[in-house]
């Protein structure tokens, strides 16, 4: 059986597209999803590593489970909808406290999804990137065909600056040093699960960034441990990098 090396959790309000993001990344396509029940666990093979991804339900009904999903997480993807200001503020109000159980080394990404609704550029699938080539089959990549996807762009309610500001507030909440943490510019993404814009980039970047913790954990011989909580404690004593 494949043991997960590291845990990534996707959080965010309902209907921001968490399941779609993950689906785009793992299945390479966009389809209509229905509201996630509880949380869904996926094991993603990434090179020689196994990354467990928790796709959580955004519904308030399942709020109580959030901290369980986040326990020992190495990366948390906080997702909002660029056309919905409320979804960004919910991140801070409802979801940030859930990450208290995450690993002390945990990294945070702020992801504005549904960028295709507001930015013409999000309709374009990046051609120069090898990872994106698969998207070409089912995604229009000529600017002309953007009209078919959505002729009228919606008003963008959440600016990139808002996301950056949230990231800094998160660092402050976590008591992390700004210069010791990944730069906000690197950790704020705008994506479109529908067109695939930035989706691979998001996941690949995060996986690269959690790679050190994977290696560290493997070296510590914790790789076979499924209980991430336990490994958290081991880390804390040995690494002692935070606070």
């Amino acid at each position: 059986m494949r043991k997960p090396d590291v845990k990534v959790v996707i959080l965010g309000d309902m209907n921001v597209g968490k399941t779609s993001l993950l689906h785009r990344y793992t299945e390479r396509r966009f389809k209509d999803t229905i509201s996630t029940v509880g949380g869904a666990f996926f094991l993603k093979q990434w090179g020689p590593y196994n990354i467990s991804i928790w796709d959580t339900a955004g519904r308030e009904q399942f709020h109580g489970l959030g901290s369980m999903y986040c326990r020992g997480a190495s990366a948390v993807i906080l997702t909002y909808d660029v056309t919905n200001w409320q979804s960004l503020s919910e991140l801070e109000q409802r979801f940030l406290s859930l990450t208290d159980t995450a690993h002390p080394d945990c990294i945070y990404a702020i992801v504005g999804n549904k960028a295709d609704l507001t930015d013409a550029c999000a309709h374009l699938v990046e051609m120069d990137d090898g990872h994106m080539s698969e998207d070409i089959q089912d995604t229009p990549h000529h600017p002309a065909s953007t009209t078919s996807t959505s002729s009228v762009l919606l008003h963008k309610q959440v600016d990139r600056m808002d996301a950056l500001a949230l990231y800094w507030r998160i660092l402050r909440y976590k008591g992390l040093e700004e210069n010791a943490s990944p730069a906000a510019e690197r950790m704020c993404f705008e994506t479109s699960a529908k067109t695939g814009y930035n989706v691979d980039f998001l996941f690949e970047t995060l996986f690269e960034m959690v790679l050190p913790s994977i290696l560290k954990k493997r070296n510590e011989g914790d790789a076979s441990t499924v209980d991430l909580e336990h490994s958290t404690e081991t880390k804390r004593t040995k690494a002692g990098c935070c606070r």
Partner: peptide, 17 residues
């Protein structure tokens, strides 16, 4: 019914109260 209604993303393992 819950299973039928939540089968949209079937590759994962669901954990729910």
């Amino acid at each position: 019914n819950l299973i039928g209604a939540s089968s949209a993303f079937q590759a994962g393992e669901i954990w729910t109260p």
